[in-house]
Design a protein around this nucleic acid. Structure first.
Lengths: 100, 100
DNA sequence: TTCCTAATTAGCGTATTGGCTAATATCCCA
DNA sequence: TGGGATATTAGCCAATACGCTAATTAGGAA
């Protein structure tokens, strides 16, 4: 959870994720879209990888990064759950009626 | 958004929020529940206040902190929206299936 | 091998974070 | 006015974050 939020705490990293939402992009293609050096981008990729938010796929010398949307979904859902946000209906001791 | 995620990126601060979910608590009462000094707690309160996640109410010498759940809700909802998570229905004509 | 391209890793400087103790407001009460 | 309780601010230190340039790794082509 800490890794997730740390990763999302930088605007550039959030921007990287939104770029990848459209589709996979190589490290170089991503770097071209931002106004920082490639090594700086590489560092941000590492943070996002460590949080599981992106996955790298190698093809020759090119690394293509894929957004791991499910990790983002599960992480944010987990946060909402932690704080009791979402489909909560009974503020009292009412039992949930979901089966399973 | 950055302030929100920075605030949530520290486990102790998330813990403070979950404690406040049950109900308002004074700064001292909160400090008693954690194993760090009061000034350290005060610093964390400041971060949470800056993000709008908690609100202080003074009564005598005592500051009582209230969770601003709506800010948390809106913030996380905003994040989900940013990444296109949630009740996405019409981003095109495609009936979306699964992740890869 | 050697060269070229793609990307990361190494190293450095500065800013921020996060913890502590000590000092300082602020308020209530006598 | 002074004392006691509550909480923050000030100051310090170690660790982390974040940007850069230079060097290195890795793969493909000749």
């Amino acid at each position: 959870m800490t890794d997730l939020f740390k990763a999302l705490a930088h605007p550039l990293r959030r921007d990287i994720l939104t770029h990848l939402r459209v589709g996979p992009l190589s490290a170089g293609a991503l770097a071209d879209r931002f106004d920082v050096s490639k090594p700086t981008m590489s560092g941000h990729f590492a943070v996002l990888r460590a949080a599981g938010l992106i996955r790298a796929e190698r093809s020759g010398t090119t690394l293509t990064y894929h957004l791991q949307l499910s990790v983002l979904e599960d992480g944010l859902a987990g946060a909402m759950d932690l704080f009791g946000i979402g489909q909560e209906q009974g503020t009292g001791s009412d039992a949930k009626t979901t089966r399973g």
